[in-house]
């Protein structure tokens, strides 16, 4: 833990990041967007409800919408924050010098990764007060919020690692961005598509109803961040997911395993490929 706060790259990135105006304007813009969204939602509801009162059902709706907004922000901001972490140093011709220092490849990658993650966490935390509004209206438990936050962070770590990996492997930031956003779309869109297809294939068996377990449908559903958030917000969704796939392995556990693996593998690849392998002389 101590090494985290003495990591040279992390400290440098913080200095650079918080000196840049765009970091502050980024946080402000994010909070503004979130506030407008929440208060707009509340005002619209107030208008429709003659009683001028927000029910707990509507509160849950607000909560789930907020969660999807947070998820979308993470999915869209994380690639932008990480996909240039190494390649932009290469483009600015600062990477070579960094690589000749005594820092280990792990330290450099860790510093790059954690500086982005800490900043994104700050964004999430800055949004918390707005979130807490939901509790005023009831229908949502704080423990639910904690679980959702934990999974937002798991998602952030995985997408961030993918970004850092592409930034290490690909020479140009722009291409790394495309690859990272592409991966993000695969994880959300393509998995959803495969989930629906494999579900359909399972259904069109002899009987016409789902009886056999569909490993594929379960897998594609499990690794889809949107599907996971749905089941975390509404337990009924979880039941229907188990019903559809006929497999009762907890979706959150599958998600955690899959994305932890993605994070570890991507970071390992980044560490391995950051420097040339001097030992591989033929």
């Amino acid at each position: 833990m101590k090494s985290m706060f003495t990591n040279p790259v992390l400290i440098k990135e913080f200095k650079l990041r918080f000196r840049a105006f765009k970091s502050f304007s980024g946080i402000m813009f994010y909070l503004l967007a979130l506030s407008i969204f929440v208060f707009g939602f509340i005002f619209v509801l107030m208008d429709f409800n003659i009683s001028g009162f927000i029910s707990s059902e509507e509160s849950v709706m607000l909560f789930s919408l907020l969660t999807y907004v947070q998820l979308a922000l993470i999915l869209f901001i994380t690639p932008g924050m990480t996909a240039g972490s190494i390649s932009s140093e290469r483009e600015k011709q600062t990477l070579n010098i960094l690589l000749t220092t005594a820092q280990s490849s792990f330290q450099i990658i860790f510093g790059k990764m954690s500086s982005s993650i800490v900043f994104l966490m700050l964004l999430l935390i800055a949004g918390l007060p707005i979130y807490s509004l939901v509790f005023l209206f009831g229908g949502v438990s704080p423990s639910q919020l904690i679980v959702i936050f934990a999974f937002l962070i798991v998602t952030m770590l995985a997408v961030g690692s993918i970004g850092v990996m592409f930034s290490t492997l690909l020479r140009k930031t722009i291409i790394s961005m495309i690859a990272t956003y592409g991966s993000m779309l695969v994880l959300t869109g393509v998995t959803a598509f495969f989930f629906l297809i494999s579900m359909e294939m399972n259904r069109s068996g002899m009987t016409g109803v789902t009886s056999s377990p569909s490993i594929f449908a379960h897998f594609w559903g499990t690794i889809n961040p949107i599907a996971l958030m749905m089941t975390l917000i509404d337990p009924l969704m979880l039941d229907s997911f188990y019903e559809v796939t006929n497999i009762h392995f907890p979706i959150w556990a599958g998600y955690l395993i899959f994305y932890s693996l993605v994070t570890i593998v991507c970071l390992l690849i980044a560490v391995k490929r950051l420097r040339v392998n001097m030992k591989k002389v033929k």
């Binding site: 200095k15 650079l16 011709q93 600062t94 070579n96 220092t101």
Partner: peptide, 28 residues
């Protein structure tokens, strides 16, 4: 070794002493 490349960039947003401090910490 201390290596100085033929073409190199610097971290524009750092001050001269911070620049040296960063690399100092890079060598522990």
């Amino acid at each position: 070794i201390g290596y100085m490349p033929d073409f190199f960039g610097v971290y524009d947003q750092l001050k001269a002493d911070e620049y040296l401090d960063f690399f100092g910490s890079s060598y522990g």
